[in-house]
Design a protein around this nucleic acid. Structure first.
Length: 270
DNA sequence: ACTTTAGCCTGTCGGC
DNA sequence: TGCCGACAGGCTAAAG
């Protein structure tokens, strides 16, 4: 489900309720997620106070003195801070009981998310190989252009490769390529330096805009305060197969790339 | 070194 | 109404 803007929206919503609070107890109803919940997290987190919440790629890092919990929402996960007495639903897999009398509740129907642990001063293997943040200064057109030389993979797959750049998922990849006028299946090595410059700017603009709007609502994204996102009605191509392109009225097409639906305008994108 | 594929899960939706 | 397949926002590991 969530891409970078949704994770960032979640971070901002959780921070006021979590930072400075002590985690008193974990209640694990379902340990089997994308990876089993880390035993170290179960052992070390109770009693710890939350110093800070950071986002890296689509991971939330909940920092404590003992180390950091790494939370990933997968495709269908959400995190909310609720009163302890809130009834438990069938997909409410893990609660962190806080000293505020509230719980941080992790809900995830498809269980593609994860709760992992990183000791203080160490870097979890899953974070070690990640590419730069798309909103950072080290991500720009020249970076993409240099990495893409000789590569035959579709430019959309390059953009979604977390080793190249993190946080760009299926929706925002489609939207950024539309904004840049680049066909999603074009070979990455065949995109010019100038067009990568446009693409990198488009990625930054779209992500920043989506964060400002509270993320996308496609099925079930809910921010920690219960508000849905409002980006959905502003999508140009994603999910609009057969509908007129918002720029030129040509019907939007859908193809499959890397087992994912890929929407584009056959007239605006080359 | 790069590219492609399978798979982790459950819920929902459209077609028959 | 019910059954069945296709599909869903992510990502890794393994195979090619």
């Amino acid at each position: 489900m969530p891409e970078l803007p949704e994770v960032e929206t979640t971070r901002r919503g959780l921070a006021p309720h979590l930072v400075g609070r002590r985690v008193d107890k974990l209640i694990v109803r379902q340990p089997r997620l994308r990876w089993p919940i880390a035993p170290e997290l179960i052992a070390l987190l109770p009693g710890q106070r939350v110093d800070d919440i950071e986002r890296r790629a689509k991971y939330l890092l909940v920092h404590t003195q003992a180390g950091s919990a790494l939370l990933h929402l997968g495709m269908s996960g959400s995190l909310r801070v609720l009163p302890e007495t809130t009834p438990v639903g069938s997909h409410d897999h893990i609660d962190w009981r806080l000293d505020s009398g509230q719980v941080l509740r992790y809900t995830d129907p498809r269980r593609f998310g994860s709760q992992l642990w990183q000791n203080a001063g160490e870097i979890h293997p899953l974070l070690a190989g990640l590419g730069p943040e798309p909103l950072g200064d080290d991500f720009d057109g020249d970076y993409l252009w240099h990495l893409s030389r000789e590569r035959k993979t579709a430019v959309k797959l390059l953009l979604m490769d977390q080793k190249i750049v993190v946080g760009v998922g299926n929706i925002y990849a489609a939207e950024a390529l539309f904004a840049a006028g680049i066909h999603p299946s074009r070979a990455a090595g065949q995109v010019s330096r100038a067009r990568y410059a446009v693409l990198a700017v488009a990625v930054k603009q779209i992500l920043a805009y989506a964060i400002g709007r509270g993320g996308t609502t496609l099925r079930d994204f809910i921010s920690p305060d219960g508000q849905p996102g409002y980006f959905e009605q502003e999508l140009f191509v994603y999910g609009r197969s057969g509908q007129p392109c918002r720029k030129c009225a040509t019907p939007v097409k859908v193809i499959t790339l890397g087992q994912r639906s890929t929407f584009f305008c056959p007239r605006c994108q080359h």
